[in-house]
Design a protein around this nucleic acid. Sequence first.
DNA 1: GTTCGAGTCGTACC
DNA 2: ACGGGTACGACTCGAAC
Length: 816
Amino acid sequence: MKIDFIPIDYGYFDFEGRNYAKIIGRDAKGKRVCLIDSCDVYFWAILKDKLSQKQIQKLQEKIEKIKVDVKGRKTKVEKTELHNKKFLGKDVKALKIFATNYKDLHDVADKLGMPEIEKRRGYDIGFISHYIIEKKFAPLYWYEVSGEILNAGEFGGIADINVDFCIKVNSINPIKKEIFSPKVLAFDIETDEFKIGEGEILMISLVSENFKKVITWKKNKEFPYVEYVKDEAELLEKFSEIIKQISPDFLTGYFSDGFDLPYLKARAEKNGVRLNLGLDGSQPKFSRGIMTTAKIDGIVHVDLLRFIQTAYSQYMQSETMSLNEVSNEFLGESKKKFEFKHSSKIEADEWENYFEYNLQDSILTFNLFNKIWADLLEFTRITQEPVFNVSRNGMSANVEDYIVHNLSKFNEIPEKRPTYDEIGERKRRGKYEGAFVFQPSPGIYENLGIFDFTSSYGSVIVTYNLSKSTLLEKPEKNAYSIDITGRKVYFSKEQGFFPEMLKDIIEKRRQYKGELKDKPDAIKKARSNAFKLLANASYGYLGFFGARYYCEEAAAATAAFARNAIKEIIEKIDKEKYKTIYSDTDSIAFLLNGKTREQAKQFLKKLNSQLPGIMELELEDFYKRGIWVTKRTGELGAKKKYALINYEDKLKIRGFETVRRNWCTLAREVQNKVLKLILEDGNEKKAMEYLKGIVKEVRERKIDLKKMTIRTQLTKPLDEYKAITPHVIAAKRMAEKEIPVDAGGLIEYYIAEAKQENKSKLIRDKVKLIDEEGEYDVDYYLKHQLLPAVENILQVFNVDANILVEKKKQTTLGEF
DNA sequence: GTTCGAGTCGTACC
DNA sequence: ACGGGTACGACTCGAAC
């Protein structure tokens, strides 16, 4: 039997002591197919130099006698082969050691304490990754697969699962085909309590293509999309039933790893109901550890929150990752409004709203999935790991997956994961010197340009061949070398596999970015973006303590070479009679100084022709005006804080309170407006008029309390705080009121007018939660929010912002 | 009791 | 445990007066 097949989910099982991969996917007709396949199971023993043929042969014989018995499972070394391999770029002789069961490789490796063996590697990859690499059978690509249909009962019943058919694989061949539309089911639950399992699950909404449903046991009127069941137990059973009936490739939720699925599990246990969601009828499996993940056999459970966090959050405007904000940004759609109450307090006529609210959450989740699908697909194809992992990976893990899946091109044996002790050691190491930030002079400037390096750190790594495998132990003449805080490090000029992989990533990024410009489409955009993120994350990967190819020297050298590169450009810019105003890491803002934009573009070409390796400088934009301000303390210009306006009158504001979420809306709006007025006109006149009006409104308490709300994140559990800041006080009060406060949650509060007897100087003593009655503290908002937000901007025009509020002092005095 | 620098904390930039 | 370093600025804390 021969079919076109696209692998979606990977699992594995043991049968008669051996490992089998179980791959779920679709054929060309959309039939759901399960493949069963096996592959060689082995790891590597890297041999010491200068062993004789005879010594090696003796060693092989010894190793081939190894047997282990782990928990009743008997594994033995089946055979060994001698190979010429590479390890960290160096030629090595290594024994490929084949064993019965992948799970026992570690135990087999433990028996290889022989003096002839230098290192043991390749037993910590994970069977599924190993299988994908070994069979070159990567997820979400199309293959022609041939094999035999499996009948019920074979492989101890593993083939008896809810798919159209099951095949024992004979051969796999890649074919050219791209199109794949997965079947997606989004879901969301509503409960009486936030704490996992504490309340009842009231309803579950499910949304798929042409399918919208809310199941609930809270009987109400008939609605087309609502299906009533008897009780919570039946609700859970109905949920499983619908999943089985729709049979989606992907089950998706928002924060469903952390909330919906754990909740369902807890309630299923309480009700004595099985939550048999898997294709094999199994219940979701939850991982232990800091982040729980919920895995369903044969169906890929995607928690969108996790993926959106790693793949998009750095480019997002949203200040929280709430479903509402994220949907607003990605889809232009919002959640329905519903005021939460315990179900016992919900009136009969309010239920319809609740049902709609619940349904809308699944609709948003479903639409979000479709929005991010291209990115998830491309990340999966590029890193070649199953979607389940990719959707939960951090960027470092994506980089590492990419490396591990591409090592065979370099004949490289994989490096091991760091041990617990190694991680501790790496974490204890002090910081190395990072990026260069130019000291700006405060002022307002006209006619600016900004250049920046494309994939700056990535192209430095490639250009100077920086990596663990190219780091030289001793100084060499013909090598790249650089000072990193106190010592000099050397990197070979013979290209290493890590820089070469990265070079490929950056080239592909350029290629797809170009193609995207010519003819935009979602997949190209996603591909270009995935390569960009991968390139940008590669530097972080080098310095990440959990990385297999961690190399502090390479990370420090990357930052050092990048510092030199940008400083050189700054010099050249100034030498050419432009004037550098500011620079941070990989970008430079400069004055055109009477030169035309065309001249600046020509100059950019010249700069590029002089750059080494794959380093490339590009034009970010030209700007009509820009403002840099002083720090709050001292005369110096503040770094990472500026505002620009381009020739299309578009503002680019960085670092100012305007963009900081822990400032109240009033201060942010006012500052934004002031910056806009100043940048448009080039003077402060309109801004001053505007400000006077605002100060008056604040004083007369005409500002809506909502605009005075300060939002601050609780970054750790309440009892771990050493300093009791306003937001900690607010959080404590929330806890007292039994409002859920978790690490990671946003705490909202305002500063209220103090009572007469409260003479405390501490701001935290004036904290009120947003639903607590009170009046905002005029003095605080003027002096601690409004003034700081505009003071330094006005100072650029030699205007003392205090004159705006000083009147207040006099009137206050007058009042008393 | 006030002052001031150090320390804590959150958030942003790239 | 689940990318890196640089930087600003608010607020509290506690030593020094």
